[in-house]
């Protein structure tokens, strides 16, 4: 071997060893911390669901997980009381065409088969035996990575709140979509209005911005001010965060698609949940 190529091999070997060692260390750290990261993410979610649904003692929450069974071409819904370990649930199975395949009780702790692909989750608030509200999990492709969010809907599918749960948008720009004043723009719009929702780069009117900031801080009287301005704003598009039109559009499109899909699925699913909803 010529000296030059031997040098090249040595350089390549040095880099390879460094990368392998780095990957090994990161692998160990990942395995050691992942459990705790998941646990804390779950806590955050629970708090978000509880506050968005306004849970009190008269409300119970049912968590519905949706899966795809690719081999049998089926969509499987598993419903179980949220935050009640050991409670019995219910499983409802549909074909891809929306035809009911079967519905049956699901014993507590039934494991999820590895072949099932998770499609999403919905939390249903049950008050006086009826579905009083929903929190639907959604995902949208942001500027760099996926933006995960919750959309809270009232029983009539009017938007009660939007909260970004996880994102990697740029601080000071796209990250603003996770702020209360931006997400407050969706509140109070009906499902039909959300279905037509667009995004504008026009500047947000100052009184509307002030009302949304007050609403996100739960200031006294902010609800009434918001309602009166909403009459003017509900026909208008969502005002994008300045300099972050892509992130703003991502969240808006995500909310629209999430609400549309959920309404269609709920119409199919609700009659088969038995005593749960």
């Amino acid at each position: 071997m010529k000296p030059v190529s031997r040098e090249v091999v040595r350089i390549a070997a040095s880099m390879t060893v460094a990368c392998a060692a780095g990957a090994a260390i990161l692998g160990v750290v990942y395995v050691a911390t992942d459990r705790y990261r998941e646990a804390s993410a779950l806590r955050t979610e629970r708090e978000a669901v509880a506050t968005m649904l306004g849970i009190d003692s008269t409300t119970t929450v049912v968590e519905v997980r949706q899966y795809l069974e690719p081999a049998r071409r089926e969509v499987i819904y598993r419903a179980a009381p949220f935050g009640v370990p050991g409670a019995e649930g219910r499983e409802v199975v549909f074909g891809l065409d929306g035809a009911l395949v079967g519905a049956h009780a699901l014993p507590a702790g039934e494991p999820v088969a590895k072949t099932l692909e998770p499609l999403g989750r919905v939390f249903v608030a049950i008050r006086d035996g009826r579905a009083a509200g929903f929190v639907v999990e959604g995902e949208a492709r942001g500027y760099k990575n996926f933006i995960r969010f919750f959309v809270a809907l009232r029983g009539d599918f009017e938007v009660a709140g939007v909260r970004v749960i996880q994102h990697e948008e740029d601080p000071g720009l796209g990250a603003e979509v996770a702020t209360g004043w931006f997400d407050g723009q969706y509140v109070g719009r009906s499902a039909e209005e959300v279905a037509r929702l667009e995004v504008t780069r026009d500047p947000m009117p100052e009184d509307w911005r002030a009302a949304l900031v007050a609403l996100s801080r739960r200031a006294p009287g902010s609800g009434a001010v918001h309602d009166s301005l909403l009459a003017r704003e509900r026909a208008k598009p969502i005002y994008a965060v300045t300099g972050a039109t892509i992130s703003s559009r991502a969240v808006t499109d995500g909310v629209r698609v999430t609400v549309e899909h959920f309404r269609r699925r709920w119409a199919l699913l609700a009659p088969h949940l038995g005593g749960m909803a």
Partner: peptide, 11 residues
């Protein structure tokens, strides 16, 4: 490593 540790223990 610090990023993962922070995410796990100081969310």
């Amino acid at each position: 490593a610090i990023d993962m540790a922070l995410a796990a223990f100081f969310p």
